[in-house]
């Protein structure tokens, strides 16, 4: 069932930020063949499905607490933590996964950036 009308899309387009409108203008000005290619590609991108799954949530408070207090001691390493217990740590993530899986415990994976890694500047753009 179609729930979004062309008029709604048009209204959204009219209120897009200026940069996004410019991108839209550029797309509409593409040669017909390229527009057609874009149309062909669009359905290949699935629509994101959003829902709530009661009972799925796992409380990671203990793991987060342990990592807050101890992660800096394992610079440059991957860590697997379950509750307040460190199950495995290594610079090699495959070793950590193998050991943590073998433990049979439910765990949270983390990475402690090395001191040589400069602070992350953020902003990873398409």
């Amino acid at each position: 069932m179609q729930t979004i009308t062309y008029e709604q899309v048009k209204q959204q387009a009219l209120y897009l930020p200026r940069e996004a409108q410019q991108t839209l203008r550029s797309a509409l000005a593409l040669p017909v063949a390229e527009q057609q290619q874009l149309l062909t590609e669009l359905p290949a991108r699935p629509t994101v499905r959003v829902s709530r799954v009661p009972g799925k949530a796992r409380d990671f408070s203990l793991e987060q607490q342990w990592l807050r207090e101890n992660k800096h001691l394992y610079r440059g390493e991957h860590l697997a933590v379950s509750g307040s217990q460190l199950i495995a740590h290594s610079a090699n993530p495959h070793e950590v996964l193998a050991a943590a899986d073998a433990s049979g415990m439910d765990f949270l994976l983390a990475y402690s950036p090395s001191e040589e890694e400069i602070p992350y500047g953020g902003g990873l753009w398409l």
């Binding site: 699935p46 629509t47 994101v48 499905r49 959003v50 829902s51 709530r52 799954v53 009661p54 009972g55 799925k56 949530a57």
Partner: peptide, 9 residues
């Protein structure tokens, strides 16, 4: 998943 919230595809 972020907590109980599921985001598919």
């Amino acid at each position: 998943f972020l907590g109980e919230l599921s985001f598919g595809d």
